[in-house]
Every structure is written in structure tokens, then in C-alpha cells.
């Protein structure tokens, strides 16, 4: 219902308004297109150029593919610097991530063609295997990054991590008071449940959301046999159930957060190992010319 003549402002000056699209769709899949083109060129070169005696890393096509591959590996690993070096300029980390993903995937084709399908038990194949490990972990990462954030946001129910923990603390205080009139043995199970911090679990438990000895679950079971007439005990049981609900939410949260990081535990060390193996591969190839 309105004309908007004075907001011409929005089209002028330094323009920062960002497109609302993910790193995968960045600029209508620009990097997917570029990397597909690169792969097509490499495949065409491999099959159309007849090298003697057979396709191999040592032919000129092989060297070219190897150089492109090695260059890409070095450039891709520089994302770690780019992400942390907040310099001035028109770069966008989203574009870098997008390029990282699609160019990284193109390495599957480039490096495989570079091998000429000659694999064996040697440092060269080690470098290839490490690279594939990095790529596979990267694919897992893409999958996690594209599915988990929505799940995480849903599970959080518009709360922050801190608010979730505060909710748990509030329940704990209520439980602590509600458990005062209970007999000793029941009170002890409640206290044991209260001592159950969501952070005591290690990485694996967190990642697989596996808590076999959950003291809160156990405490709830203790109150199952209590007659319904025991109001105090039943109230404590209800509170314990709420605590369990909250605890499960936090645990799911931690699981998702752990998953978001987990793949990097493979991706990054494997990249370092890959660079070392790649260096060995290049040095040995030139040394034993």
C-alpha cells in the first residue's frame, strides 16, 4: 500500500546485502559448474590423448594431471588459513567453502586419472589413499553440514545452550527441595541422579548419545513401585521425568554438536598426513627418475 520513493538509498553506496543461499548453492552453483568442466577436460584429455606405452603418472598428461592435483591439494588446505585470517578485501568465506567443496570433489577424478589406475603398496598409493580418506571425510562433512544445523535448531526449541543448562539447573533445585521429605534410600537415588552432569560423558558417548548407566533413568524406575498415594515421591518422579526430558534434549544437542565437529578429527589430520605423503611422493618420483 505504499510508494517508497525515499528508500533509493538501498541501491546506493557500499552494497553489502548478501544473497540468502547456502555455500552449496553459492552463485547458482558456480563452483560446481567450474569443477565439472575441469573434470570433463581431464577425462577428455585422458581418453583422447594416446600416450605411450600406456596412461601413467609419468607421461606428460600424467604430469599435468599430477601438477593440477597437487596444486589443488595445497590450495584446498589453505582454507584453514583463510578462515582465520580476517583481512580486508572482497573475499567471502562462503565462496571459498563452495570452491573447496566442489574442487575437492573434482580431485577424485583428477587424481585417479593421474594414477593411470596403477596402484600398489608404495608411498604413491599411500598419498592417493590418504587423499581419498580426506575426500570421503569431507563428503561426510558436507552431509553433516547440510542436515545437522536444521536438526540442531529444531532440537534447541529457540533456546540457547546456556538457557538449556539453566533449565536443568532450575529442575535440579526443585528436585533437591522436593526430595527433602523422602526416606533415605529414595533420597539417595535422587541425589545420585542430580550428580549426573551432562558433561561427564566422553566423546564417544556424546557422539552416539549412548548413556547406559543414566542415573536419572534409574531413579525414575525406583519410584515406579511407589503407591500413587505417596504424593511426595510421585512429585519427585514427575520432576525426574522432566529432568530426563531436559537431559535428553541437552544430550541430543551435544550429539549434534559433536557430529558437526567429528568429521574434522579425520579430515584435518588426514590432510596433514596427505601433505606429508604428497611431498614424499613428489620427492621420490623426481629422485628415482
Amino acid at each position: 500500500m505504499a510508494t517508497n520513493l525515499s528508500s533509493g538509498a538501498l541501491q546506493a553506496g557500499r552494497e553489502f546485502r548478501t544473497d540468502h543461499e547456502s555455500f552449496l548453492q553459492h552463485r547458482s552453483f558456480r563452483w560446481l559448474k567450474l569443477s565439472s568442466l575441469l573434470m570433463l577436460v581431464c577425462i577428455a584429455a585422458y581418453f583422447l590423448i594416446d600416450v605411450e606405452p600406456r596412461p601413467n603418472g609419468g607421461t606428460w598428461v600424467g604430469y599435468t594431471l599430477g601438477t593440477i592435483g597437487a596444486g589443488l591439494i595445497v590450495w584446498l588446505s589453505l582454507l584453514g588459513f583463510r578462515k582465520r585470517a580476517i583481512t580486508e578485501g572482497g573475499w567471502s568465506l562462503k565462496a571459498w567453502t563452495s570452491a573447496h567443496v566442489y574442487l575437492g570433489l573434482s580431485l577424485i577424478v583428477i587424481a585417479t586419472l593421474h594414477t593411470g589406475f596403477q596402484l600398489g603398496w608404495n608411498v604413491h598409493t599411500l598419498a592417493y589413499a590418504l587423499m581419498m580418506l580426506v575426500i570421503v571425510s569431507g563428503i561426510v562433512g558436507i552431509w553433516f553440514y547440510s542436515t545437522i544445523p536444521a536438526e540442531l535448531s529444531l532440537n534447541r526449541r529457540e533456546m540457547t545452550q546456556r538457557q538449556m543448562l539453566e533449565g536443568l539447573k532450575a529442575l535440579d533445585r526443585q528436585l533437591n527441595e522436593a526430595a527433602q521429605p523422602l526416606p533415605r534410600d529414595q533420597a539417595d537415588t535422587v541425589l545420585a541422579a542430580l550428580g549426573d552432569s551432562p558433561f561427564s560423558a566422553g566423546f564417544w558417548r556424546r557422539t552416539f548419545n549412548y548413556y547406559p548407566g543414566c542415573k536419572t533413568t534409574r531413579a525414575i524406575a525406583v519410584f515406579d513401585d511407589v503407591p500413587a498415594s505417596d504424593k511426595d515421591a510421585k512429585r519427585v518422579q514427575r520432576l525426574l521425568m522432566r529432568r530426563k526430558g531436559q537431559l535428553e534434549r541437552i544430550r541430543r544437542h551435544m550429539k549434534l554438536k559433536a557430529l558437526l565437529e567429528s568429521w574434522l578429527f579425520v579430515h584435518v589430520p588426514a590432510t596433514l598426513a596427505l601433505i606429508a605423503a604428497l611431498a614424499a611422493h613428489i620427492v621420490s618420483v623426481f629422485f628415482y627418475w
Binding site: N4, S7, L10, R14, F16, R17, T18, D19, H20, E21, S22, F23, H26, K83, I86, E88, G89, G90, W91, S92, L93, K94, W96, T97, Y145, P149
Partner: peptide, 24 residues
């Protein structure tokens, strides 16, 4: 004064951070 504009948006790896103007 920083060339390239707001760092928060430039440094977002996934495109989650966006800057918008309300009427748009």
C-alpha cells in the same frame, strides 16, 4: 573503513549469516 564490508558475513563459511535491510 574496512574494504569488503562487514567481516561477520564475509567470514561465514556456510552462508548462514546475512545482512538485510527491512524493507527489502
Amino acid at each position: 573503513g574496512i574494504e569488503g564490508g562487514p567481516s561477520c558475513v564475509r567470514a561465514c563459511p556456510t552462508g548462514a549469516a546475512i545482512r538485510v535491510s527491512p524493507d527489502v
